[in-house]
């Protein structure tokens, strides 16, 4: 099929800023975006910069934005993107500085991984043989270990993007999905003895509660790691471990309590309950919003589900089961 690759080029050695260059070719049906890029690099333009190695979605080198979303070039077939005669836009990953063409500086990514102390920390004497642990626990962790550190999730993380857009220095930005999925791999490991410390650290600002739940990382992860789901699991583990003195936990609890009481969500008390009723420092900035909403008739008594007693019964019974 005939296809054009519109590639974002950038060479810091030239005086030119980033620009787009279009390469047209006749691509066989089986061609992936990586096949096409390699074809360009080898046959027409040796100056094109990109990283790639394994060609089979295991080394994590070739994450880039393809038609606006982070993908592994080696796993993305052109025929799935466009029809004959179409165009595919290829850009470097987002949220990381571009070094040259499709090559980004991954340092911020690795720094975040490093920040979660990513190694097993057992305590006490090592057993002579292996640790005896259930296979299900290992299977769950293997799901997280599927991560190939390609950076697709960090590229398309909306929270990180907002932070960088508003000028937060990269070392102060939040941990972002990959590092948190990596953290989950240790928190969920029955052999690790530092789960509480880890969860406490992860519950700080810039950790698990900063995730906005946008599903971008689940959507773009090429290995089914579902980082956001891991973050949600970390939240659950943190709360179960009793690490609850944060807005995130209070927000979740307020949500839960509202459903239990009314069968519905009561947005009115959600904010004060989340930041704490007496937390003037954080409540104050929210006050204008509240006042505006009051004026517009948007603050009303909670709407209640009919037969809400039944909902409360379900909540109580499942909560009880969970406790057990």
């Amino acid at each position: 099929m005939q296809v054009s690759l519109r590639v974002r080029r950038f060479d810091p050695e030239s005086n030119q800023g980033p620009y787009y260059q279009t390469y047209s070719m006749d691509a066989p049906d089986y061609y992936t975006v990586l096949d096409a890029l390699i074809h360009i690099r080898e046959e027409t333009d040796g100056t094109l910069g990109l990283r790639c190695s394994c060609r089979s979605a295991i080394c994590g080198s070739c994450a880039m934005r393809i038609d606006g979303h982070a993908k592994l070039a080696c796993k993305t077939k052109i025929i799935d993107l466009t029809a004959d005669g179409g165009e595919v836009t290829v850009e470097p990953v987002g949220n990381m500085p571009v070094v040259k063409d499709l090559i980004a500086d991954m340092k911020p990514f690795w720094d975040k991984i490093r920040a979660v102390d990513p190694w097993l920390q057992p305590e006490g004497p090592e057993p002579e043989r292996e640790y005896v642990v259930p296979n299900e626990a290992m299977q769950d962790l293997a799901g997280a270990m599927n991560c190939i550190m390609c950076g697709a999730c960090v590229s398309d993380c909306t929270v990180l993007e907002a932070e960088l857009n508003r000028g937060v220095p990269v070392e102060k930005t939040w941990l972002a999905p990959a590092a948190l999925a990596k953290a989950y791999r240790f928190v969920g490991d029955p052999r690790d003895d530092h789960q509480y410390d880890r969860l406490e650290k992860l519950s700080d600002s810039g950790g698990i509660w900063d995730c906005t739940h946008c599903f971008e990382c689940i959507e773009v992860c090429p290995k089914g790691v579902a980082p956001m789901d891991r973050i949600m699991a970390l939240r659950d583990k943190a709360v179960s471990a009793g690490i609850t003195n944060n807005n995130g936990t209070r927000h979740a609890k307020a949500f839960h309590d509202s459903i239990k009481a009314y069968g519905r969500l009561d947005e009115v008390t959600l904010v004060p309950k989340s930041v704490g009723f007496f937390n003037i420092r954080e409540l104050l900035p929210q006050m204008p919003t509240g006042l505006r909403m009051l004026k517009a008739g948007k603050l009303r008594l909670p709407h209640k589900a009919e037969n809400k007693k039944k909902i409360k019964q379900i909540v109580d019974s499942l909560d009880k089961e969970q406790m057990e």
Binding site: H213, D236, A252, F255, H256, L265
Partner: peptide, 15 residues
């Protein structure tokens, strides 16, 4: 009218 809030993903974090 008897249905409940979906939990908006927040409830699933806890239970």
């Amino acid at each position: 009218k008897e249905a409940s809030c979906t939990g908006a993903g927040v409830l699933s974090e806890q239970n």
